[in-house]
Amino acid sequence: MSDHRIIDVKLDERTILWRNADVEQERRVAIFDLLEANSFRPLTEYEDGYAGPYKIVMGVEEGRLTVAINATDDRELETFVLPLSPFRRTVRDYFAICDSYYKAIRAATPQQIETIDMARRGLHNDAAEQLTERLAARVEVDFDTARRLFTLICVLHIRQ
C-alpha cells in the first residue's frame, strides 16, 4: 500500500543565515500547509518496496538544493540534488515583490495591495510550475505542494 505524502519537513538550519519575522511566518505557514495536504511521490522504487509516507530534509549546498527523503522510521531512502541556478532570478524577483507587498501593507491603499499581491501570487505560481518540471525526473508533486516547496526554497536563500 502506498501513501505518497510528506509527513515531516525540516530545513537544514546550517544553510539559513538570517530571517526576519515575516520570513519566519512564511516558513511556518508553508510547512503547516504542506503537512496538511500534499502529494509527493518519489519515482525511485526502493528495494524494500517502501512507498511512503515520507520525511524530508531540505538544504542548500554549493548553490544546489539537497532533498533527503526518509522513511517514517528516519531510515534514509535517498538524497537528490537539484541545481538552483534556474531559480535565482525567480527567487530574487519573488523577494523583491514580497518586500513591496510587506511595505504596501503598512502604507498603501487596498487596491494597491491587491495589485501587488496578484503579481506576487502569479510569480509564485510560475515558480511552482518551474519547480514541478525540475523535480519531474526524481519526484512527482502536485501544484500546491510545489508552491509550498518553492516558499521553503526561498527561505533557504535568505541572506543578510
Rank of each mutant, 00 (worst) to 15 (best):
A30R: 02
R121D: 11
Q25E: 15
E140P: 01
Y101N: 03
D93Q: 14
E26M: 11
V141M: 00
R147W: 07
A71N: 10
V141G: 01
K55G: 06
Y101E: 09
G122T: 07
Y102M: 11
I153C: 13
Y54N: 08
P42N: 08
D33Q: 11
P53V: 12
N38C: 10
R89F: 07
E24Q: 14
Q160E: 03
E76Y: 00
P53K: 07
L17F: 12
L131C: 08
E47F: 01
S85K: 01
R27M: 14
A68D: 06
P86Q: 10
M1I: 09
I7A: 13
F95L: 15
F40L: 09
T15E: 02
M58L: 05
T79V: 04
T90G: 03
A68Y: 04
A108M: 06
A21Y: 05
S2C: 04
F80G: 10
E36H: 07
T72S: 15
F143A: 04
I56G: 01
R121S: 03
T109R: 06
S2V: 02
T66Q: 02
L152S: 08
S2D: 05
M58Y: 00
R88S: 15
E133R: 15
S39H: 11
E133V: 12
V29W: 10
N20F: 14
T79I: 06
V81F: 04
R138T: 06
F143H: 12
L11Y: 08
A71V: 08
I105G: 05
R27A: 05
I56Q: 01
E13V: 13
E26Y: 05
E62Q: 13
Y102P: 00
L84P: 06
L123A: 05
V155L: 04
F32L: 11
L35A: 07
A107D: 00
L123C: 03
T145F: 01
E62N: 15
D99Q: 14
T44K: 13
R41L: 02
Y54H: 14
A104R: 04
P83Y: 02
V57M: 01
D22K: 09
E78R: 06
D142N: 15
N20D: 13
G122Q: 14
Y94W: 13
T44F: 00
V155F: 05
R106S: 11
I97T: 07
E133W: 12
V60P: 08
R75Y: 01
T115W: 04
P110S: 01
D93N: 09
W18C: 08
M58I: 10
